[in-house]
Simulated assay, not measured.
Amino acid sequence: MQIGVPKEVKNHEYRVGLTPDSVQELVSAGHQVLVERNAGAAIDFTDEHFRRAGAEIVPAATEVFDRADMIIKVKEPQPDECRMLRAGQLLFTYLHLAADPDQASLLLKSGAIAMAYETVTDDRGHLPLLAPMSEVAGRMAVQAGAHHLEKAQGGRGVLLGGVPGVAPARVLILGGGVVGSNAAGVALGIGADVTIMDRSVDRLRELDRMFSESIRCVYATAAAIENYLPEADLVIGAVLLPGASAPRLVTREMVGQMKPGAVVVDVAIDQGGCFATSRPTSHQDPTYVVDGVIHYCVTNMPGGVARTATQALNNVTLPFVLQLADNPIRALLSNANLRNGLNIHCGRVTHKAVADSLGHNFTDAFEALKK
């Protein structure tokens, strides 16, 4: 199979779909890999590194899309990239379609087979291809929040860990999954006063054991959120419904009750965000203010640490890429976990949560593949 890796074109996105090590694995398995010129140069994966691994360097994205049977990316295809896709071509990347009806429309029109990293599952129902970026984003959320709490950035002028004689900042984390637990670990390590909320009592028990009772674990009712928000200096949105739009846990009125200069970091923004006041931002212009509260809603947070994120992502995507490259239809029909990643197949929406969020008809992925 010919596998194509275009350079990412989203604002301040420096990650790359395959590392040279991954290319070498694919080439050794008998596949051809086309890499757009300078696709990984920003994170010191040079064209020469890719050549040594066995890739062919091509001058433009148009050639990558024209020649490749499968396109491997990191972020969702931008409109011009969607228009370069062709019927039956396989796309494997993060899509986050529930919050992006325009992208969904273009992918449906293309006739391509669009697979989303974020909905591939494992035997326990977890999301193995989302997990490493969730780990990165959870840890970065605390860094971003700490930075924007500084007075020069418009924040309250509060140090997360405090100092002897001065209380630490209060951090509230909504969601106790991979993002939330990683955020809690970093915030606790800095010395912050941490509260984490979740709707699963079993998960709250796990978090309580994980952090040896060093954080408060609170069941996430609307009343509990409303009670804790006014005291928080930093609030991290870390909720996820796989494939679906994020639930809006915080209303505009609740944001208005927060302290002036407090910071919101909405990691759920890829799926629409869990604050009513959230809207997508970029690394170039990461924040805005609503009712005196700083909002950080960057849609590609891990792109800020692009080399680490690329390596972490490839560690988990490579086995799936190899399966798809050998025989994509057979791999999808035989592997239900991989098939859960199929969001769009030749003009039809094949993931139930995506279809429900977008208001499209749903076609079962297995049935779509057999036609």
Rank of each mutant, 00 (worst) to 15 (best):
G180M: 03
M115V: 10
G157F: 13
T121R: 05
L149Q: 00
T119Y: 09
S105F: 09
L204V: 13
I196L: 15
R203E: 11
P101S: 06
M115S: 10
G145Y: 01
R203K: 14
Q103C: 14
G185Y: 14
L97E: 01
I196T: 15
L159C: 03
R199A: 11
L127R: 01
R203F: 11
V120S: 03
H147R: 12
P101K: 08
T195K: 12
A137C: 04
V120N: 03
R156W: 10
A184P: 02
T195D: 10
S134Q: 00
G154A: 14
D123H: 15
V166Q: 14
R139F: 12
G138L: 02
A192M: 12
R124Y: 15
S200D: 13
T93F: 06
G125L: 08
R205V: 15
V201H: 13
L108G: 08
A141P: 03
V201F: 14
T119I: 06
D123Y: 15
G180A: 08
G185A: 15
M115K: 09
L107A: 10
A116D: 02
A167W: 01
E150V: 06
A131F: 05
D123E: 15
L97T: 02
D100Y: 05
H148W: 15
E135V: 06
R203C: 10
G125A: 08
D122E: 11
T93H: 05
L160I: 09
M140E: 13
T93V: 06
L188N: 10
R203A: 12
T121Q: 07
I190M: 12
A192R: 09
V201C: 06
A192S: 14
V186M: 10
P168W: 00
L149V: 04
D198S: 12
R203I: 06
R170G: 09
G177T: 06
V179P: 01
R170V: 12
V158Q: 10
L204K: 01
A183H: 11
G176Q: 03
P128N: 00
A144Y: 10
G175A: 08
V120F: 07
A112F: 11
G162K: 02
P168Q: 03
A99R: 01
L174A: 09
G125Y: 13
L149Y: 02
L129A: 10
R199V: 15
D122S: 11
V136S: 04
V201M: 12
G154T: 13
L160A: 02
G185P: 03
K109S: 12
S134G: 00
G157M: 07
D122P: 03
L172S: 01
I173S: 02
G111Y: 13
Q153A: 15
R203Q: 15
L127N: 02
H126I: 06
H147D: 10
Q143H: 13
I196M: 14
G175Q: 02
A184G: 08
L149F: 00
T121I: 03
A104D: 01
L129R: 04
M133Y: 07
I113E: 08
L90G: 01
Q103Y: 14
L160M: 09
G191T: 04
M197D: 00
L172R: 04
P164A: 11
A99H: 02
V179W: 11
L130G: 00
I190E: 08
I173D: 00
G154D: 14
L107K: 08
P164M: 11
A131K: 02
M133Q: 05
V179N: 05
N182F: 15
P101Q: 09
G157C: 07
R156K: 13
H96T: 07
E150C: 09
D198V: 08
A144C: 07
